[in-house]
Amino acid sequence: MLHIGNAIAELRESREITQEDLAKTLGIARSTLSHYEKNRRKPPLDIIVLLANTFNITVEQIINFHKREI
């Protein structure tokens, strides 16, 4: 089972975006983003929506990232 944090990290890295830059875009601390990526915390829905908008994909695609629908 792939956790959403893995999807966030893979999406970010595939677009060559730093944690610092993505965190600024989302309006959160870099450490918070790190916790999401390492599956220590689950991002709230509003952050998932912002991520989808940032990566120009749907929320469903982030949630189902392990299926490689992106």
Rank of each mutant, 00 (worst) to 15 (best):
residue 70 I to C: 10
residue 12 R to N: 08
residue 56 N to Y: 14
residue 48 I to T: 04
residue 58 T to D: 07
residue 23 A to F: 07
residue 42 K to N: 08
residue 37 E to T: 03
residue 5 G to Y: 06
residue 63 I to N: 02
residue 55 F to I: 03
residue 49 V to K: 13
residue 60 E to C: 09
residue 32 T to P: 00
residue 28 I to E: 01
residue 6 N to R: 13
residue 8 I to N: 06
residue 17 I to M: 15
residue 26 L to W: 02
residue 49 V to R: 11
residue 69 E to F: 09
residue 17 I to H: 04
residue 4 I to V: 13
residue 43 P to N: 03
residue 50 L to R: 15
residue 19 Q to A: 10
residue 66 H to E: 06
residue 39 N to D: 09
residue 24 K to F: 09
residue 1 M to V: 02
residue 22 L to Q: 02
residue 10 E to G: 01
residue 49 V to P: 00
residue 28 I to P: 00
residue 66 H to I: 00
residue 12 R to C: 07
residue 69 E to D: 10
residue 59 V to C: 08
residue 16 E to V: 06
residue 46 D to C: 09
residue 17 I to L: 15
residue 1 M to H: 07
residue 4 I to A: 02
residue 3 H to C: 07
residue 17 I to F: 13
residue 24 K to Q: 11
residue 35 H to D: 13
residue 3 H to Y: 10
residue 61 Q to E: 15
residue 18 T to F: 13
residue 10 E to A: 11
residue 39 N to W: 03
residue 48 I to D: 00
residue 1 M to A: 06
residue 37 E to G: 04
residue 3 H to R: 12
residue 7 A to D: 03
residue 55 F to S: 05
residue 4 I to Y: 02
residue 25 T to L: 14
residue 60 E to T: 11
residue 63 I to E: 05
residue 29 A to T: 08
residue 17 I to Y: 10
residue 6 N to M: 11
residue 2 L to T: 06
residue 67 K to R: 14
residue 70 I to P: 00
residue 49 V to D: 05
residue 51 L to K: 02
residue 68 R to E: 08
residue 54 T to S: 14
